[in-house]
Design a binder for these strands. Sequence first.
DNA 1: GGATTGACGTGTC
DNA 2: AGACACGCCAATC
Length: 108
Amino acid sequence: MEQSFYDQVFEVVRLIPKGRVTSYGAIAKSLGAGGSARMVGYAMSNAPLAHPPIPAHRVVNSAGLLTGKFHFKTPDLMQELLEKEGIVVKGDKIQNFKKYFWDPLIEI
DNA sequence: GGATTGACGTGTC
DNA sequence: AGACACGCCAATC
């Protein structure tokens, strides 16, 4: 089976603890992809196609902005899920992003 | 197999 | 502070 970056990305995203978030770049780095942060986001396009559900709402860009919220079923869903996990989101942006940040490089 | 595409990142104007 | 530009790199057309 060709485990493309997509599968690797999915795997990492699924490892994100509840109430935590991470950035595309961090995931890419943990995969050894380095600057291919775009690939991570690109992979997430296939997230809804993945068999196990992927908590894509826990993945945001380096600024803590919910850039991919429009790719969800509904744009508000992402923020709702995050707030439900205790994360404060204001203006499509995560507050105390640094505090909620989960680094796969460290945790894995 | 070249061109296009992206849920990004960092830097510059 | 906000807008714009370029770079990265793999998958898809």
